[in-house]
């Protein structure tokens, strides 16, 4: 039996909760805008999960300041760098999706994927 009430486990549960909510929105909603919101929720969940991968209990930020010169108590900097990349990529995709949505709305005057003409969703 592992300890579940550690910061890492609780954060992981929160992260997966967000991912599940996001995926639920993506698979059950019909409004493109809500699909994009779902995507962003899941994205935030994944980012929390990623940054959590390098967290150690009681660790400090990995910055060498006057007070802190020892690397022993620092959290892992690599996942933080990965999350920075992931956030930027998520932003890029969101911006593009919103641009597409504006164009689609101008074409069909609806955001409901079921009412759009061509494709099966």
């Amino acid at each position: 039996m592992n300890q579940i009430f550690t910061v890492t486990s609780l954060m992981n549960i929160a992260a997966f909760g967000l991912i599940i909510i996001g995926l639920l929105a993506i698979f059950t909603q019909r409004n493109i805008f809500k699909l994009i919101i779902g995507l962003n929720l899941a994205d935030v969940g994944v980012n929390i999960f990623l940054v959590n991968a390098g967290y150690i209990d009681g660790g400090t930020a990995p910055i060498f300041t006057d007070g802190i010169r020892s690397a022993q108590i620092m959290t892992d900097p690599v996942p933080q760098a990965l999350v920075l990349t992931a956030i930027v990529i998520g932003f890029g995709i969101t911006a593009l999706a919103l641009g597409l949505t504006i164009r689609l709305f101008e074409k069909y005057h609806t955001l409901d994927v079921k009412e759009m003409r061509g494709l099966k969703w």
Binding site: P62, I63, V78, A81, L82, L84
Partner: peptide, 21 residues
Amino acid sequence: TVTSVVVFYRGFDTLGEVTVL
């Protein structure tokens, strides 16, 4: 250190990242 990782150790990722933007 995060900057070291972002710009130096994984600078190639950052190049990809600005490419995505």
